[in-house]
Design a protein around this nucleic acid. Sequence first.
DNA 1: ACAAAAGTGTTGCTCATACACCCATGT
DNA 2: ACATGGGTGTATGAGCAACACTTTTGT
Lengths: 236, 236
Amino acid sequence: MTKYAQQASILIAVDCIIFGFDGDKLKLLLIQRGIEPEMHKWSLMGGFVQHNESLTDAADHILKKLTGLEGVYMEQLQAFGEVYRDPGDRIISIAYFALIDIHKYETQLSHEYHAEWFELDQVPQLIFDHNDMVEMARKKLRYKAALHPILFELLPEKFTIPQLQSLYEGIYDSVFDKRNFSRKILSTGLLIKQKDKDKLNSKKGAFYYMLDIGKYNENFHAFLNLIPNPDHLQFV
Amino acid sequence: MTKYAQQASILIAVDCIIFGFDGDKLKLLLIQRGIEPEMHKWSLMGGFVQHNESLTDAADHILKKLTGLEGVYMEQLQAFGEVYRDPGDRIISIAYFALIDIHKYETQLSHEYHAEWFELDQVPQLIFDHNDMVEMARKKLRYKAALHPILFELLPEKFTIPQLQSLYEGIYDSVFDKRNFSRKILSTGLLIKQKDKDKLNSKKGAFYYMLDIGKYNENFHAFLNLIPNPDHLQFV
DNA sequence: ACAAAAGTGTTGCTCATACACCCATGT
DNA sequence: ACATGGGTGTATGAGCAACACTTTTGT
C-alpha cells in the first residue's frame, strides 16, 4: 500500500485560536485540558487530524465541537514543527485562527471543555508552544485587519459605527478620530444603514448598520487604509 | 512512550518553491522526479520530515541539497492537507518558498536532480497539488513585495536601480515610471550608492547600489508603497 | 437644564503621479 | 554625430489628518 520507504511516523494536530469581541475587549477562547499530559492546564482547543479528513475539515470539527459554530471565518495561521514542542511525542501542529460572533457562542459547550474567554493581555501560561501561536495570531490579525475588512466577522449582523470603532481601537490599542473613522468606513461602501437605532449605549442612540455581503466578497482583497499609521505592524 | 491513544500515522513532507531572477524574468526551480510514483514528472523539490528535524530544518536541508545554498530567505507558505492530494499515501505537505540569488546557484547539483529553471508563465504540469502551491507562492510574493522590501533577496549584493526596476516590473507584469520608481526606492534610505558602475547594460553605465543591511533589518516591517496601485493584489 | 454620546464639514498639507529634458558613453 | 539607456526636477491633484460644534434624548 505505502509507496514510499518507511518513514518514522509523526502525529499531526490542529489547534484553533478563537477570537471573539464582547463589545469592549478582544478575547480568546481557551480550554482546560481534560487529558494527560498537562491535565488541567490551559490550552488552545485542538485535536488530531484523522486519516480521512483534510486539515480544514479537522479545524472545522474542532471549532464546531467547542463552539457549536460552522461556516465562520477561519484561516490557516502556520504549521508549528519544532522537534520538542510537545515534550512527549513528536507532534506537528497546524494552527488555525477563527473570528466568531461571541454572542453566537453556545455556552453549554464551554462547561464540557471547561472553556473560558480571556482578554488578550491576560492570557495565562499555556501548554507547549500555544502562547507563541496566540501571539502570532494576534499579530497576523492586526496586520490583516489594517488592510482588509476582516473585523466585521467579529460583530453581530447588526452593529453601530461606534461599536465598530471601539473594536478597531481595542485591536490597535489606540484612539481614532471618530469623524475620520466613520468617513473611512462609510467610504468603503460596505455598510448598509438600517432604520433602527441601538439605544443601549447612549441616550441619542446610534443607527445600526449591516454588512453588504455582495460588496464585502467583491472587495475583500481591495487594499483599504483603515488604520491611520500602520507602520508599527509587525507581521509577515 | 507514546502518551496519546493510537492515531493513524500520516506522513509529513516539506516542499520548496524556489524563486530566482535572471535579470529579465522571475523563474522557478523545478526537478524531474527520480522516484516512483510519478517518476520523470516535473515537481517541486521536497522530502519527508525526519523525526529529529524541525520543519525549518527540513526545508533548509531540502534547499541545500538542491542548490547548495544556506541562510537564504525562506518562509513558510502554507500546509497542504487534502486527503487525496497524493493519490497513493496520506501525506501532508508544508510548503516553503525561498528567494535566492540565481547566480549563486550551483549548477552541478542541478544535473543530479534533473533540475531546470522555468519562467513563471511556462511552468509545466506538476505532480499532485504542486501547481496550486506555486500559484499561491506567486500571489504571496506579489502581495508581500508590494509592502515590504523583500525583492532584494533575489538580487546579487551589488545591483543597479534599473535592474531593480526591471525585477519589480517583471513581478507585477507592468511598467513603472523610472523617475517615480527611483525616487520611491531611494527615499526608503535602504540603498547605499557605490562608486562603480555597471556598464554591461548601457553605454553610460548605471551606478551600483548595495543594501544597507542594518536599515533593512530595522525597517523590514515598515509599510512601503512600492507599487503604484496594489488594489489588484489577491492574497491573504 | 444638563450630561453624554452621536453625527456632521472644512481646511491645510503631504505625498503620489504625471510628465520632459539633459547626461555620459560606445560605436 | 548619433543612438542608447541613465539620471534628475516640477507642478498638479487626491486623499489623509487635524480640528469644533450641533443634535438628540434620558435623567
